[in-house]
Design a protein around this nucleic acid. Sequence first.
DNA 1: CAAATATATATAAGATATTTATATATACAA
DNA 2: TTGTATATATAAATATCTTATATATATTTG
Lengths: 119, 119
Amino acid sequence: MENTTSNSEYLRGTLKTIVLSLLAENKRMYGYEITQAVKEQTNGEIALTFGALYPVLHKLEQEGALLTESLEVDGRLRKYYALTQQGAETAREKTIELGRFLNALQNLLGVPEPLPATS
Amino acid sequence: MENTTSNSEYLRGTLKTIVLSLLAENKRMYGYEITQAVKEQTNGEIALTFGALYPVLHKLEQEGALLTESLEVDGRLRKYYALTQQGAETAREKTIELGRFLNALQNLLGVPEPLPATS
DNA sequence: CAAATATATATAAGATATTTATATATACAA
DNA sequence: TTGTATATATAAATATCTTATATATATTTG
């Protein structure tokens, strides 16, 4: 498989929110699954590295946003991460915040805003 | 004036491209002007700090993407930054790249894509 | 007339986030 | 048996950004 350029440079700062947002949609996921989901849902445009992902997962766990559960699947341990109630709240807030930021940035870059619906 | 939350956390990584993109639209700008333009064009949503901006400007200059010109205005020195030909090319590339990233991220966060125009 | 605010550029120390490299381990395909 | 896919994780190095600070003029406010 060819490797898409994968501009990870822009990922800086958004990684945490991406993880929270995915977990808000999926109930529980394991690390590898998260990287695959991001790759698939963005057509290879965004690729998470494990070196970046795991520290984020561990930090979110420390902060009380995530709970983990280890299951043995096919003879290997698989560590699932799920949002706590508090984490779900954080996910909502951060996703909205990031959405606002993305809109602002797109305006700045010259992408026209959708016209308000005519009354 | 109240200070909008200004989620600078998401700015990480995009700062360089923002600066290049603004300079592509404006021919030449000075540092303070750049911070004001970003603030205005994003309704206060994005606020650059000087501590982040100047290092980026200096680095772009070092890399040959920018040229500077100091003018005295109202008894004070004002340092203008403008894209070199090479910088203009970089700006084009990076702006497109960031645009692609922003779209990918919005899809990931569940923002629906605009429908393709009906023929 | 003094103080605050807006304009203007810049650096340094410290904090944080991310990349790159590495270690470990199983299953399956070539 | 070599490589690829699956799976988690840490450490060192680097890059980036925040916060604090310095300097200086002009204008507004009290």
